[in-house]
Write a protein that binds this DNA or RNA. Structure first.
Lengths: 217, 217
DNA sequence: TAGATTGTTAATCGATTAACAATC
DNA sequence: TAGATTGTTAATCGATTAACAATC
């Protein structure tokens, strides 16, 4: 059942997290005119282990790398993008048009990641009808209906902690399959829904801890 | 050399990432009047493995948990905050007052994480002297000097990809020990500097991939 | 006491790293 | 051919999970 030409690639969660870095690096190299890249060279540039990069490239590439040369950049880029689903764009809605929500709406670059924000929703009725970053802001009570009608798969939560779970429930009711959560709370969801937490505090934790260790010395 | 009352707690990187979630949950419980929490209860609420939570609590807590009861919430909170260095606040500077930078400047909540943004810097001279989120925006050419003078330990990079490495170098020159990088590039730094990448694309990767799998079925 | 929860020790699991033959 | 790089197989490492005695 494996080894078939189109068998699903097994990549670890950690490896998945490295993929965007490879992608960014490979595109940079491609722009510079490079067409073939060797794992050791990429590893050196990205401060990663040589074997790890080789393994990652091998896992994601559909054709084998060429000894002495490396992997074809164009193909590697295509394969990584395909793995990450960047080729078939998914529509998304954003809930919460506060400062963070607005920043996200203004951020260009999600489109390259296979995500297209269709509209924003906010509980504040006075925002309804306005535009932020070129996206329409709609009243929150239309959320479920719109998700269903437009067949939305991704919901982005950028509301305060207190409202996050309620918004989450609405998104699920609207048929959303994956939730990108910027509120620092644990959301309860049915098992088949993926919740990706973008918790600033969690990233800061590592940083703070490092600093903590440094200062002790 | 271990087992001493004040020996450094060894917590895995993954466990460190879980700490903010515990913290948030514990504070919530504390607010609700709960004073003692058992690992299994916390695990159930957070959808985590019971043993894992127990181990994490044990690792971070300075006093032992009480069988049949659990851990004292107030102490657990204190110990986690101490581990993460939230008690001695570190000053930080933010570079790049664009849409993301502004959102970060307006975000209240970093102070709870032991981080205090002192000022923002931007290459756009017309922003100099203005205030965003109550923080002064200063011209970029004062960056190194200010970091040195104010003894800043944390630098936040919210500039476009093209300028990120240059800003990073300036921060390091200014004596910064840890960098929180929001630009989707790999930054080269001396070994002792910690770079914490907040790469939206990397988080999106997991989400996209999950969706990719879902849609295939 | 009985029952639940902790702490400890061992087993499992998975990812990273190392070693080396195969290949261009 | 010689040398560099790949792919594969095995070893190492670390984290998670399981099992069970100790404790309140």
């Amino acid at each position: 059942m494996d080894g078939l030409p189109d068998s699903p690639v097994m990549v670890s969660v950690q490896a998945l997290h490295r993929m965007p870095y490879y992608l960014q690096y490979l595109k940079e190299q491609q722009k510079a005119g490079v067409t073939v890249i060797a794992a050791p060279a990429a590893a050196a540039s990205l401060d990663l282990n040589e074997v790890q990069v080789r393994k990652d490239f091998a896992a994601v590439s559909k054709t084998r790398g060429r000894p002495k040369a490396g992997f074809a950049i164009a193909e590697l880029i295509f394969n990584i993008e395909e793995l990450l689903g960047y080729h078939n764009v998914h529509d998304a809605v954003l809930v919460g048009a506060g400062s963070l929500g607005s920043a996200l709406l203004c951020y260009r670059g999600f489109d390259d990641c296979g995500m297209h924000i269709v509209a924003a929703f906010d509980a504040d009725a006075s925002l309804a009808g306005t535009e932020i970053g070129g996206k329409k802001v709609l009243p929150a009570d239309q959320l479920i209906e719109m998700c269903q009608r437009l067949n939305i798969h991704i919901g982005i939560i950028a509301v305060p902690v207190g409202q996050a779970q309620a918004v989450c429930d609405q998104l699920v009711a609207g048929g959303v399959l994956a939730i990108w959560n910027f509120a620092p709370v644990h959301l309860s969801t049915p098992g088949e829904i993926l919740v990706q937490n973008e918790n600033m505090a969690a990233s800061l934790a590592l940083l703070s801890q490092h600093l903590q260790e440094k200062m002790k010395i």
